[in-house]
Write a protein that binds this DNA or RNA. Structure first.
Lengths: 211, 211
DNA sequence: TTTCCATTGTGATCCAGGTCACAGACGGGA
DNA sequence: TCCCGTCTGTGACCTGGATCACAATGGAAA
C-alpha cells in the first residue's frame, strides 16, 4: 500500500501536487521542524515516521503524537492557518520521505479537492481526540495504568525502548518508569532486558490499564 | 458587531446556509450536547457562550474551552469527521443562539466557501494551540502560577466565580484553590468575598504567572 | 427574623510521583 | 579483553496537591 498523496486525490488536484510540490528526504534523527520556527510548508509523510514532541523548560520531553504515512500533522496545519511558529519539534524516527506542500498550494488544494479536505480534517479530528485523552491522563495521575496501557498496546512483539524513551512518552521521569516496570516484572506481567520489554501477560496489563 | 455566519460568507455560501440551516436557541444551563451523544450538526454560535468540559469518573469536571460568537467548536468538527460521539459536554453559560449546520451542509460549505474553510481551520488551529498550553500546564504542576495567570487575565473587572468553578477551570480541587487564594489575599494581591475576587495587583499576579 | 443551603476557611493526613545520588550491569567498539 | 558510555535498579527524601472532616459565614428565600 502506497501512501503517495497523488494516489488519493482527484486528477486535477494530483496535477497541482505534481507541479507545485517537492519531495523531500530526511535522515533518521533529523528535525523535520523545530520549536519556534516558522512554518513554510505542509509535510505529507509518504514513508517513515516523525515524532512530534514538546520540550519543557526543565529539559523534559513529552511526545505528543507520531506522524506516519497517510497522516497529516495537526501542528503544521495549525501553523499555516494561525501564522504562528511551531510550538513543538518534529524528529524523524526513521528515514523519512515526504511531500512538501507550500502554504499557497495547501490552501488551493483545500478548495479544489474534497478528498484532501477529508484527509486533513479527519486527521485533525483524530488528533484532537488523542489530545483530549492525553489531557485526561495527565490530570489523573495513575502512572501504573498508563504504562500498562502503553505496553498492552504494543504487546504484539517485544517492546524495544529504553525506560527513558517510555518516560518521555508518558511525560514523567525515568526512575518512575523503571520502578513501575520492575513492579510489573515481579508480578509476572513482563520480562525486562536492556532496551527491551517482553510482554508476558497482555491481558493482565490490559486489566491494569482499563477502568 | 454581529457574528451571524451569513455575513461572513460569499453570497452563494450564505444562500446555502439560509436554506439548509436552522437557528436554535438554548437557555442558560441547558446542554448543547452531552458526552456520548452522536453529533448531528455543527453549531455556529451567534450569541452567548458555551462551555465545553469533560467530567472525570470521580465526578471532577474540567473546562476545556469556551465557544463564543464567531468561534466554532473543535469537538463538533471532530465528531463530524470522525463519526465518533462526543467525548465531552457543552453547557450554555448564558442564553445561546446558534446556527445548526447539518453534517451534509457542513461538508458542502467547506467545498463551496473559502471563507468558511478559513474560519473552521483557523479556529481549529487556535484550539490545538490552547490544548498544547493546557497539556503543558497540567503536566508541570504549579498551581499557584496557573491560578495567578487566570486571575491576571480577567483582572479588567472583578472576577465573579466561586472557588469551585475556578477549581474546575484548573482541573483541581476546591480546597486547593481556596488555600491558594487566601495566600494571595494575605500577600495583598487580591480581595476575596463571596463569589467574587477583586484583583488588587494585576502586575504582581502576572509576575507570579509568567516565567 | 429565621432557616437553610451554598460557599468558604482550615487543620490534619496521605500519597504518587519527582529528585538526588549512586552502584551495577550490559555491550559495542578499540 | 578491556574500556567507556549508556541503561537500569534502588534507597532516601521531598513536595505539591488530594482528601477528609468540620466549622463558620453569607445571603437569599420564606
Amino acid at each position: 500500500m502506497t501512501a503517495a498523496l497523488v494516489d488519493r486525490l482527484e486528477p486535477e488536484a494530483a496535477r497541482l501536487v505534481s507541479s507545485r510540490c517537492a519531495t523531500v528526504r530526511l535522515g533518521r534523527g533529523e528535525r523535520a521542524f523545530r520549536s519556534g520556527e516558522d512554518c513554510a510548508a505542509y509535510l505529507w509523510v509518504t514513508a517513515g515516521t516523525v515524532r512530534v514532541q514538546v520540550v519543557s523548560e526543565r529539559g523534559r520531553e513529552r511526545v505528543l503524537y507520531r506522524v506516519s504515512p497517510g497522516d497529516s500533522c495537526v501542528l503544521t496545519t495549525s501553523c499555516l492557518f494561525d501564522h504562528e511558529p511551531y510550538a513543538a519539534e518534529g524528529v524523524c524516527e526513521t528515514d523519512v520521505t515526504a511531500t512538501a506542500i507550500p502554504a499557497g498550494a495547501f490552501r488551493d488544494l483545500l478548495g479544489l479537492s474534497a478528498s484532501f479536505r477529508d484527509l486533513v480534517l479527519a486527521d485533525y479530528a483524530r488528533r484532537v481526540g488523542d489530545m483530549l485523552v492525553m489531557l485526561d491522563a495527565a490530570t489523573s495521575r495513575n502512572l501504573g495504568a498508563r504504562l500498562a496501557g502503553l505496553l498492552a498496546e504494543r504487546s504484539a512483539g517485544p517492546v524495544t525502548a529504553t525506560h527513558q524513551e517510555i518516560a518521555a512518552e508518558l511525560g514523567t521521569a525515568r526512575e518512575v518508569v523503571s520502578r513501575a516496570l520492575k513492579d510489573f516484572e515481579r508480578r509476572g506481567l513482563v520480562a525486562l532486558s536492556r532496551g527491551r520489554i517482553d510482554v508476558l501477560d497482555a491481558a493482565g496489563l490490559g486489566r491494569l490499564a482499563g477502568g
